[in-house]
Design a binder for these strands. Structure first.
Lengths: 122, 122
DNA sequence: CTTAATGTTCAATGATCCTTGAACTAATGA
DNA sequence: TCATTAGTTCAAGGATCATTGAACATTAAG
């Protein structure tokens, strides 16, 4: 429950900021994969296919600051989760349509995603 | 029917580009007002409340290049319309949720919009 | 204690963004 | 013809963006 990193409260999540944050292929891919992974949290390291450690850290911060994901430190890792409920309550239907559109549009299976199988094991 | 200005065909409308184009308060306001105006076309001049002629021209070009609006020259004016159908067929539900979220979020009534009344007359 | 694993921070760089004002084009109207 | 209307183009400026490598911090594991 303790909030190590700054996250905007639901009522402060701003649409332009959310749209800007999602208007980047790397971040959109991260969101799509997070969404395809159900409620399970993921770590930054699982996105290194999309860029360097520094780059992922940068994009994850952007998504967090926009209010799209929640980041919780656990050991040396960061556990990332989509703020599905918060986004749904603030912009009903929005995230779902973005996810659906992304799945139909982005070719991130070209990056090695048969059906999110590699995120199963720990 | 003649297409004076370059518009991306439906199948080339890209989600990241659309999100980026909408991730700007000025452009989001333009879209929201266009949407609130039904099927009626509007001109660049009707958005001068949001910036200079140059700025509006710039933003309108961005929206057109992203595939969000259609621009048709008529005399010295440009008639702007939302590409509702195209966007709906490519990203089902997306535009509607953005419009709804914008209406609930952006304070563009603070710019003199009681209920889109000033767009009625010609 | 030492090493490895996981991210963050910083400074630098090149690219892109948004705005501005001046000059311009094209169409309309007196 | 001359002026007006509506918008575009261009160059310049400052701001923000996304990436990189090097150094660092923190936690975990041997």
């Amino acid at each position: 429950m303790t909030d190590y990193l700054p996250h905007p409260p639901v009522e402060d999540i701003a649409l332009p900021a959310v749209l800007t944050a999602l208007g980047d292929e790397t971040r959109l891919a991260i969101i799509a994969i997070l969404a395809s992974n159900g409620e399970r949290a993921m770590t930054c390291g699982q996105f290194l296919q999309f860029g360097s450690k520094t780059a992922i850290s940068y994009h994850v911060a952007k998504l967090r600051e926009a209010g799209i994901i929640h980041v919780r430190p656990e050991g040396t890792k960061r556990l990332l989760t989509l703020r599905r409920g918060d986004l749904e309550s603030r912009f009903p239907g929005f995230l779902d349509t973005v996810i659906a559109s992304t799945a139909a549009t982005l070719p991130y299976d070209s990056l090695g995603m048969p059906e999110a199988a590699q995120f199963a094991g720990e």
